[in-house]
Amino acid sequence: MMNTSKNSNNILVIENLTKIYHSKDGETLAIKDLNLNIKEGEFVAIVGPSGCGKSTLLSILCNLENKSAGNIAFPKKDLKLGYMLQEDTLFPWLTILDNSLLGLKVQKKLTKENEDKVIKLLEDYGLKDFIKKYPKNLSGGMRQRVALIRTLATDPDILLLDEAFSALDYQTRLAVSDDVWKIIKKEGKTTIMITHDIAEALTMADRVIVLTSRPSKVKKIYDIEMDDKTTPINNRKCKDFNKYYDMIWKDIDIHV
């Protein structure tokens, strides 16, 4: 109660989250007493050593997995979450429009009005000519845009991006993350992004959260403040870019 009144801007509060994986050979403590607050409208990136349980965190938020202990609270109201995965996961047997409408269809909210809204999104973001096409006709970047629109179609309060750009080659990846960032900012969505790419995290996010290796908890939080901050691609040229990069690199502390 005290927590929510103090940070009235929080829309997601995670307290003492713990996750244990069980298998025949024993148990693994993936997350231990993780605490995290997310403010409305902010873009948060979560980085950490590989295998630290970043994706587990998102899976728990999405109810794909059960938590072992702790508390996940939405102080304002029961929020809708939109999940975007590493692979674009477009269904090859559905047209771009049908793929975009998938979430609405599952939630039985497919009205003419919602459909028009999705068509408008597709048109706004340069997919007008591909509405009746199948995913194989699209480039990697376009597919990722469709995947984002599919998530946006259900009008989520928080977007969860799970290594959303990892499957793309480097050039496309920079362009697509720039693209996706612009769309997210334009639609004004609160976003939590999981990534292993430090540069991607600090150029896209307002806040970068560094997790420890397993069992993971929050190690450090950076508010990314660059004087000449604009879009992700341009942010790479900022003079503060290297400063943050070095700090986060040291925090993650990778030993080869």
Binding site: S59, C62, N63, L64, L81, G82, Y83, L85, Q86, E87, T89, F91, L102, G103, K105, V106, Q107, T154
Partner: peptide, 20 residues
């Protein structure tokens, strides 16, 4: 991943069967 995607939309088991 496709199953997880539908689950994130809170799909029922029947919907997962039918749609994926």
């Amino acid at each position: 991943n496709k199953i997880n995607l539908l689950k994130s939309f809170k799909a029922s088991k029947w919907q997962i069967y039918k749609m994926v």
